[in-house]
Design a protein around this nucleic acid. Structure first.
Lengths: 238, 238
DNA sequence: AAAATAGTGTCTTTAAGACAATATAAA
DNA sequence: TTTATATTGTCTTAAAGACACTATTTT
């Protein structure tokens, strides 16, 4: 078998699904492509793997280059790759998606390469208001489903919050990401009784109105047993 | 940025973690390498992706070439890839693992390419009795953990069994894969009451001794809710 | 006081898990 | 009859879920 790699060299790309909860909605970090193909369309941040570079290192580097974010502060989870031969018109590009869940950050773009990086509402993107380049919508959908599943049996929801947060804020993360209301009382009991999920700081925070809530920070536990199952509670305030 | 891919071309390989329950133990399909590097050592079946080939198609092709098995009959699940720059002494090779759970098959090797394919006990391999090439032991361990987790909330255990099977055989799959005994009565109730997991054939099968068991085949359900949780029952026959 | 949100009490239901009891076969 | 495995019964406990109720703040 002859070595004809030069005919159509295979390249490996990393793509980043960076999601957060902002302004009461689930949002994803997108860049605007300023090169062909798909010029002007939205895309997940990402880029090609360098020779002798580990995929995860490439993900951290690309995120910094394109958005100014420091991914070493977050947990990046590698998801199954996308490798259809014709998924990229530029040639044979296999994409490795990385998922990160981050708190509401002040501004995604610092003094960065592609300064067109910005948060966009996931519901708007999936409703077709913002068309994504390549198969990035498909990759995004898979990443979202993964994140939703992760909320069930990991403590990753706390990664959506800042350093300290109230139980109501944490519940809001679940509600926004899952798109379903949860019973406030039952949720409160669940997270406080799950060893190591959240630890009280002793302080309180006054919200706009109502009784001020106790503040917590993320605990050492990373897995939730028993899990916090989706599609459970239907009760809301209305 | 210059295009210097030819310096060290990146290749994508697929590796297959094919596991089964045979002779009362969990076994994995391994080949013996007859080329350098790692000549004579065990390895997961696999090989390089061809240009314009989808990764999953490559997995099916390599499995057939190396072991004679037809992977289109099984469900192949893609796992996170391994891409450290120095994981393969031949060059820059990124490996995509695929996991498949199969019933006890008559003989893995037909008239195949590498006729050295054979089932080996997972416990023996992990005990170091059989050293694996590359980082295949690490890949195997990740695949096994994935399979164990899948037993919890999917019906994949039935894929370890033949066309028809008894509840006891299904339970044995769980016990062998998880390495823990389960309570026969509780297990029986759980799987029969989970809608769509197994459907009775109406027949019975006489085992070596004892009351003959009813036969079932796999049902349409693919997910288990509520899940069948590991580390649950400690009770066994002794 | 009224409104709003935080957090607790309590009841019901579901399911897990332990383990006894029964059923049906072979030796 | 003994032994072995299958299957059902029953009780206990853990946890989810519904929802009423109390607590503490702002307006």
């Amino acid at each position: 078998m002859t070595d004809r790699q030069h005919e159509r060299a295979l390249r490996l790309a990393v793509d980043l699904i960076i999601i957060t909860v902002r302004e009461g909605s689930l949002q994803v970090l997108l860049i605007e492509r300023d090169n062909e193909p798909f010029r002007g369309m939205g895309a997940l941040p990402g880029g090609f793997l360098r020779v002798n570079e580990r995929p995860e290192d490439a993900a951290v580097r690309e995120l910094r280059e394109e958005t100014g974010l420091d991914a070493t502060r977050f947990h990046l989870e590698q998801l199954p790759l996308y490798g259809d031969p014709d998924r990229d018109p530029r040639g044979r590009v296999v994409s490795v998606p990385y998922l990160a869940v981050v708190p509401d950050l002040p501004a995604p773009v610092a003094g960065s390469d592609a300064s067109a990086a910005r948060w966009e509402r996931v519901d708007a993107v999936l409703a077709g208001e913002r068309e994504l380049a390549f198969d990035h919508e498909q990759i995004l959908v898979a990443g979202l489903e993964r994140a939703r599943a992760q909320l069930e049996d990991t403590t990753v929801a706390a990664a959506f919050c800042g350093e300290s947060f109230t139980i109501g804020e944490l519940r809001s993360v679940y509600e926004v990401v899952w798109g379903t209301p949860l019973d406030a009382g039952n949720f409160s009991r669940k997270v406080t009784k799950t060893e190591g999920f959240i630890v009280p700081t002793g302080e309180r925070r006054a919200t706009s109105s109502g009784r001020p809530a106790a503040l917590y920070r993320r605990g050492p536990a990373r897995r939730l047993h028993p899990p916090l199952v989706r599609g459970s509670s239907e009760a809301g305030s209305d």
